[in-house]
């Protein structure tokens, strides 16, 4: 039995500890927002956060997540980082959409590390996530837009 916390909820799973976290999430915990694209840490579709750090869940063994906090795309809406989802929609980013959960998880980590990333910062981090529909132009714009939204004071902060 392995214990981990997923999107804030403690979970227990009874599978061998070397099963990739991706399949534990998708099949044991029914969290199918995290996607399978390559299984070799090449595409980023399976990106989730482990104690806040982005990992490729297809090559992360369950035991590496043992006792840790896992955040998946399904958990984003409950955090301030939901603005990325808003920015993504405002920029009309997703096409087929299959890569986008992974893109958003990578971008959240980027904005945590660099709240005001340059284009070069964005390219450096986000080039690990493939988008076969090549929505890159919109992803770039959405990241900058999300950075603006995160930096903006809350709507009533300027009121006397």
């Amino acid at each position: 039995m392995i214990r981990l916390t997923v999107n804030g909820t403690p979970r227990e799973v009874d599978v061998p500890d070397d099963v990739p976290l991706l399949w534990v999430l998708r099949e044991e915990l029914a969290l199918t927002g995290t996607k399978f694209g390559c299984g070799m840490a090449l595409c980023g579709a399976c990106t989730v956060h482990l104690d806040g750090k982005p990992v490729r869940s297809c090559v992360t063994r369950l035991r590496e997540a043992s006792g840790k906090e896992v955040t998946t795309i399904e958990g984003v809406a409950a955090t301030p980082m939901r603005v990325l989802q808003e920015a993504w929609a405002l920029e009309g980013t997703p096409q087929c959409g299959y890569c986008q959960p992974g893109q958003i998880m990578s971008a959240i980590a980027l904005l945590r590390a660099k709240p005001r990333p340059t284009d070069a910062d964005v390219d450096a981090v986000m080039s690990a996530n493939l988008c076969r529909c090549a929505t890159y132009v919109r992803i770039r714009r959405a990241i900058h837009r999300a950075a603006d939204m995160l930096a903006a004071p809350p709507p009533d902060a300027n009121k006397p």
Binding site: T34, W88, P94, G97, P101
Partner: peptide, 17 residues
């Protein structure tokens, strides 16, 4: 705006897989 965007951004969209 794309009608399919919200579900594709919060993980709820259902693909074949």
């Amino acid at each position: 705006p794309r009608l399919d965007a919200p579900s594709k951004l919060d993980g709820s969209a259902v693909y074949g897989i």
